[in-house]
Each structure stands twice: as C-alpha cells, then as structure tokens.
Deep mutational scan, measured.
Amino acid sequence: MNLTVNGKPSTVDGAESLNVTELLSALKVAQAEYVTVELNGEVLEREAFDATTVKDGDAVEFLY
C-alpha cells in the first residue's frame, strides 16, 4: 500500500488496507498513544482509529 505520510511517500508492504491502529503499529510510530492522526485532511478522534480504514493513495499526518 502506497501512502503519503507526513508529506513523504511511504509504503506498507503486504497490505491493501489497514485501520489507523494497525497502521500506527506497522509504521512503528513512537508513542502512538499520544499521536493525533489526520487522514486526508480530517483530524480523527482516537475512538475512531479502529473503525477508520486507511487505503492505498491516502495522505496521513501524525501530529505530536
């Protein structure tokens, strides 16, 4: 899956889609429990991480 992460191209191997929690784990995001996630310009509530799917071509920003 090809994404733009914090403005840079990134690839997650072996996945066509992941939820936000899985993406944080796959990318080994440090202190993931404290990060705010913006997906395609929309800031996500932490409670929505498990239910929100990240797909090929999406833009993700991790805000600390």
Rank of each mutant, 00 (worst) to 15 (best):
K8Q: 11
K8N: 09
D58Y: 03
G7I: 02
L39E: 00
G41W: 03
A30Q: 12
L44D: 02
T21S: 09
N6D: 06
V37L: 06
F62H: 03
G14V: 10
D56I: 04
A48E: 11
T52L: 06
T21W: 14
V12A: 03
E42W: 09
R46F: 08
L3D: 01
D13E: 14
G14E: 05
E16L: 14
N2S: 12
F62G: 02
E38S: 15
L27S: 00
N19I: 05
P9S: 06
L63D: 08
A30D: 13
N40D: 02
T21L: 09
G14H: 10
S25E: 13
Q31G: 14
T21F: 07
L44Q: 00
D58F: 02
R46T: 06
K55N: 09
L24G: 00
V29L: 08
V60H: 03
A51T: 15
V29K: 02
E38R: 15
V5K: 00
A48I: 08
Y64V: 11
A59P: 02
F62S: 03
L63W: 15
R46G: 05
L27C: 07
E38Q: 15
T52N: 03
E45R: 09
D13A: 14
T52K: 05
F49G: 04
E45C: 12
E61C: 12
T21K: 07
L24V: 05
V37R: 00
E38T: 15
A26G: 05
D50L: 08
V5A: 04
A51D: 12
N2M: 12
E47K: 07
A48Q: 12
Y34R: 10
V12E: 00
K55W: 07
E16R: 07
E61N: 15
A59G: 05
L23H: 01
E33R: 04
V29W: 08
L3W: 01
Y64S: 09
L24N: 00
V37Q: 02
V20T: 01
L39R: 00
Q31C: 15
L24H: 00
L27R: 00
N6Y: 01
D58K: 00
L18A: 03
S25T: 12
K55M: 10
N40E: 02
L3A: 04
M1E: 01
V5D: 01
Y34K: 09
V35F: 08
F62C: 05
N2F: 09
E61Q: 13
A15Q: 09
V60K: 00
A59C: 13
D13H: 15
D50P: 08
S17N: 09
R46A: 07
E22F: 03
V35W: 07
G14Q: 07
S17L: 09
L44S: 01
V43S: 07
E47D: 14
L44R: 00
V60Q: 00
L18N: 01
E22S: 08
K8L: 11
K28F: 07
P9A: 07
E22Y: 04
K28L: 08
Y34F: 13
Y64N: 09
V60E: 02
N40L: 01
L39S: 02
A26R: 07
V43A: 08
L23G: 01
N6V: 01
K8F: 10
N19M: 05
T21V: 07
F49K: 00
A32W: 14
P9T: 07
V29S: 03
L44F: 05
R46E: 06
S17D: 06
L3N: 01
K55S: 08
L27K: 00
V5G: 00
S10G: 07
V20N: 01
S17H: 10
F62D: 03
V12N: 02
L24K: 00
G7N: 05
S17P: 08
D13I: 15
T52W: 05
D13S: 14
D56Y: 05
D50C: 08
A51S: 14
L3V: 09
V35L: 11
G41K: 04
E33C: 12
G14I: 09
G7L: 02
T4P: 00
T36L: 11
T52G: 01
L44I: 15
T4S: 08
M1V: 08
T36V: 13
L23W: 01
A59Q: 13
A51F: 14
E61H: 11
E61A: 11
T11K: 14
F49V: 02
V35D: 05
D58S: 04
A32G: 09
V43E: 06
F62Y: 07
V20F: 06
S17E: 10
G57C: 05
V60W: 04
S25G: 09
N2K: 13
E42V: 15
S17Y: 11
V43C: 08
M1K: 02
F49P: 01
E45H: 12
T21Q: 07
A51Y: 15
A59L: 11
M1Y: 05
K55P: 01
G7M: 03
A48D: 11
A15P: 10
S10F: 15
E42G: 06
S10D: 06
F62W: 09
V54R: 01
T4A: 05
V37C: 04
E38H: 15
A59T: 14
F62N: 02
V37H: 00
T11P: 07
D58T: 02
E33F: 09
E38P: 00
F49H: 11
V35T: 05
E33I: 07
L39Y: 04
T4G: 04
L3Y: 02
N6K: 00
F62I: 15
E47L: 07
D13R: 13
L23R: 00
S10R: 13
A48R: 11
V20L: 07
N19D: 03
Y34M: 11
E61D: 11
N40V: 02
A15T: 11
V5E: 03
T21Y: 09
V20S: 03
T11L: 11
A26K: 09
D56S: 10
D50E: 10
P9R: 06
V12W: 09
Y34L: 13
G14R: 08
E33G: 09
E45G: 09
A32Y: 10
L44A: 02
K55E: 06
L39C: 04
N2L: 11
L24W: 02
V37G: 02
N6C: 11
N19P: 04
G57P: 02
V35Q: 04
L23V: 04
A32F: 10
S10E: 14
E16D: 13
Y64K: 05
A30T: 12
L18G: 02
E47A: 11
K28E: 08
A15R: 12
E61T: 14
E47H: 11
E33D: 13
L39N: 00
V43P: 09
A30S: 12
R46H: 08
L63T: 14
S25P: 01
N2V: 12
L44P: 01
G7A: 03
R46P: 09
E45M: 11
A48G: 06
M1I: 13
T4E: 04
Y64T: 09
T11Q: 11
V29H: 04
T53Y: 15
E38C: 15
T11Y: 15
V60T: 02
T52E: 03
D58C: 02
K28S: 10
K55L: 07
L3M: 05
T21R: 07
T53H: 12
N19G: 03
K55R: 12
N19V: 05
E33T: 08
G7F: 04
E16F: 14
T11E: 07
A15Y: 15
A32H: 10
A15L: 10
L3T: 01
F62A: 03
A32E: 08
N19E: 02
S10H: 15
A51H: 14
T52S: 05
D13F: 15
V20P: 00
F49Q: 02
L63Y: 15
V54Q: 02
A30V: 12
S17C: 11
D13C: 15
T4D: 04
V37A: 03
T36S: 09
G57N: 06
T11R: 15
T11F: 15
K8P: 02
K8Y: 11
V35P: 04
G14P: 05
T21H: 08
L3I: 14
N19L: 07
E16A: 14
L27Y: 06
G41T: 02
G41R: 03
E42H: 13
Q31Y: 14
N6L: 01
V37S: 01
A26V: 12
G14W: 14
T21C: 10
E45D: 13
L39P: 00
N6R: 00
V12F: 10
R46L: 06
L27T: 01
Y64I: 11
N2E: 07
T4Y: 09
L24P: 03
G14M: 09
E61L: 12
L39F: 05
D50S: 10
K28Y: 06
S10Y: 15
D56C: 06
L63S: 15
V54C: 04
V43M: 10
G7D: 04
L23N: 01
K55Y: 10
N2P: 02
Y64G: 08
L63N: 12
E33A: 12
Y64H: 10
T11N: 08
N2R: 12
M1T: 05
T36N: 07
Y64L: 10
D50T: 09
G41E: 02
G41V: 02
T53F: 15
K55H: 13
L24S: 02
S17V: 12
S25N: 12
E47M: 06
S25W: 10
G7C: 06
N19C: 06
